[in-house]
Design a protein around this nucleic acid. Structure first.
Lengths: 244, 244, 244, 244
DNA sequence: GATGAATGAGACTTCATTCAT
DNA sequence: TATGAATGAAGTCTCATTCAT
């Protein structure tokens, strides 16, 4: 699985062709360009955004530093303001971009035709992997909640992005119920909250849990076991069963 | 259920009479000062600490303001430095004091024998209610995790507090398995993490979830429904069943 | 009376056809460029200048914004620097251009012979109307004075423009004194200053006066009354009278 | 006549007694205090305010620099924010303080019993002297008007302060009319505006007028002549006369 | 023990200006 | 001639912290 960590835009080709071209003679008459040869607004904006996601995830909103972002993104501080107006807006953009990543990933799920049990399992595993692999998204969301949703409340896109997810889940549930493998009366929203809770807790509470149980909750082996349990919990819940 | 919020020091009397108690001579030579000077060191210190707990729980470490604390505690800013040296130390002191409150509260838990299904249900509901009723504890834990367990790692007492809980859970599981109502091979620690996750998520992520799904996740009616679901999820998972 | 506000360049044709006019050959060899490049240097420069006049009149020198000017003139910021080097120079250019407009306007005055009382009244009313109708001129003058005449001191043409006005006033006074309707020993310069002060104050101090007296000093009804008072004050002063 | 320039608080007694007291021996054990020995909130606040009046008068609001103010007032920048919250509020305080100075001065006039002609003359001369002696008040007001009264509109005290002035003027007018030396139907507000205009113009427009008429409008001799003219203009206007 | 006044570093933000094409 | 991207200095403001009494 690919990680969700902010990374440079794939389609960037820093000085791929221009510096030191074939014509070696003219190279001297032409002025020497400094490293980020071809600056481009969209690329720069994206670079700032990705760095900001990491910065705010690591230090929170008040702890996040514009200076650090500008240094890491290798741009002048003013560019941040040029593209994002102010710290609040930059933070919100980072938050929205993070949500977009997971929501986009969810769209890759094949919800319609598959075996519904398999589809649900895929959704759970995708969520688990996304949150566990890199904690930046989890930290960003924890931060936002500690701020009592000050910024998320101003976002129109975040509720909007949730729609398809809920739709997918409902489709899966309906198809499973039609096939008689899922029980009736499952609230899709509540189910999603359960999935999220099961996939979130060991990341969000990694340090306190590690301390409580005296072992590292980010160890791959432990995560692998946990992943099985989470899928088991969810599928047990939705399964159409009889008590023995 | 009573809340975990720090409360005024009225019902506490630690060293209320301690400073200079026995020395009868100096009591008369010392000039009697009228209020505001000499309020009583321990009491002032405690008041600052309690206000700091609330401040850091509400705003986190970088979001927490010394000024706000001094105003709320009704002391001069300098007093905070007099008693706690700096913001870092004050934060640590506040965190430790908070954990003490939580630990004390947990001692009231009584997860006795009863019917194992019933006992498990009681444990889940107790956890759910505890976390949902007052977000103070949840916010504190979130904060600590965002700070990467800076403080929790130094604590020897915190792992301790987990023991009894885990023991209770193991007792319940064993008894349920013996009665053939619970399936085998349930990892107690992992089960606890699941319970915690299911009970934690709508409190920790209250604001982002509210924004995503466009309704208030702290509404009593919603919480009541959620509580049923959580119990259902947990009991479905441990139940000894056959797929239909 | 028409306003003194800078207006779009439509009705102006300075050097509209000047660049390369006679050389008929080059017209065909030169490739025809489509917009936006090569808009026409003089026109662009003029547009910038006019916008700058309005900007500095409205916000003063330090309050004036290069960005706002570039946006309003619909040119890239760099163009401003291309044509005017820096903010200081642009301000000076704007000031000079403004004075030119004013000077041109004043040439339309016709303070001929007539009845001297009538002539004086006409001059006062013209001044009053000119200043009251559009505050552009007033604001510009205020600005220049706040900058301690930085620019006006360098201008040779400005003293010139005063001459005709002062001459008119002297002619009127002399004629009124000969007719025995004006008192002797009136200093023309001082009289002009008085007229200016009486006509200027409610425009220059419009906002502070409105605040002090709690009504709008730019209301037409109030201005009409004020106009009568100003004429009355001036004519009372110059009148040849006996105390009762 | 006393000047209106911001000056140190009269009742300040910088290190009047403490440094180097009589007891020469203890002088060495006692730590050396730096110059502004006894800092006092009210005094510091006042010092900041007075410096701010001068700064904003000289450079306007956007041109005014907090740094310069803090340096001139010999306080740390933060103190300015401690006492005045922000630049806007500081500016407004400076504006209000300036208005208070002239309004207080006006209150010293003996309006009731004197000869009404004399009383009016005194008011005119007071206004003239106040505005002419030091231009800081005039500049401050010009600035505010260039800002379109942005700050003055938020002041409740400024309209309030105007009341007594208007009352005084009405008292004088009524008394003069009763004594049959003033004509009827004089609007007090409009009269004040005229007085202000006559006393204001040569200060507000000092530089442009100097340039127009090619002599210095702040020369004492010229001001003395101008003062006579202004009184003459005002008294001519209110006088109860017959045309010759 | 307690207070009020003051400090300084560093945060966010703005704005005139320039660089490279 | 014209543009879009970028820069750096400096401005306003905040906040943890200390000084002097």
């Amino acid at each position: 699985m690919t990680t969700a960590t902010p990374k440079p835009a794939e389609d960037r080709q820093e000085d791929s062709s221009s510096p030191e071209p074939s014509d070696t003679v003219s190279a001297e008459t032409r002025p020497r360009r400094r490293s980020p040869a071809k600056r481009n607004a969209a690329v720069t904006r994206q670079r700032i955004l990705e760095v900001a996601m990491a910065e705010f995830a690591e230090h929170g909103f008040s702890g996040g530093r514009i200076d650090r972002i500008s240094a890491a993104a290798d741009v002048n501080v003013s560019m941040i303001y040029h593209y994002f107006s102010n710290k609040d807006d930059l933070y919100l953009a980072a938050l929205e971009a993070s949500y977009k990543i997971i929501r986009d990933r969810e769209k890759t799920l094949d919800v319609a035709d598959a075996n519904p049990r398999q589809a649900l399992k895929a959704l759970v595993e995708l969520t688990f992997d996304f949150l566990s692999t890199d904690s930046y998204f989890v930290r960003l969301i924890m931060n936002e909640n500690l701020m009592m949703g000050r910024m998320v409340q101003q976002s129109a896109t975040i509720p909007h992005m949730t729609r398809p997810l809920l739709d997918s889940l409902r489709t899966i549930l309906k198809s499973g119920q039609k096939a008689n493998v899922f029980r009736k009366n499952i609230d899709a929203e509540n189910l999603y909250v359960s999935i999220l809770g099961l996939c979130f807790i060991h990341v969000s509470n990694r340090y306190t849990l590690s301390s409580m149980f005296q072992h590292d909750f980010s160890e791959p082996e432990w995560l692998a076991k946990r992943r099985l349990v989470v899928v088991d919990v969810v599928t047990s819940y939705v399964a159409n069963v009889k008590a023995k």
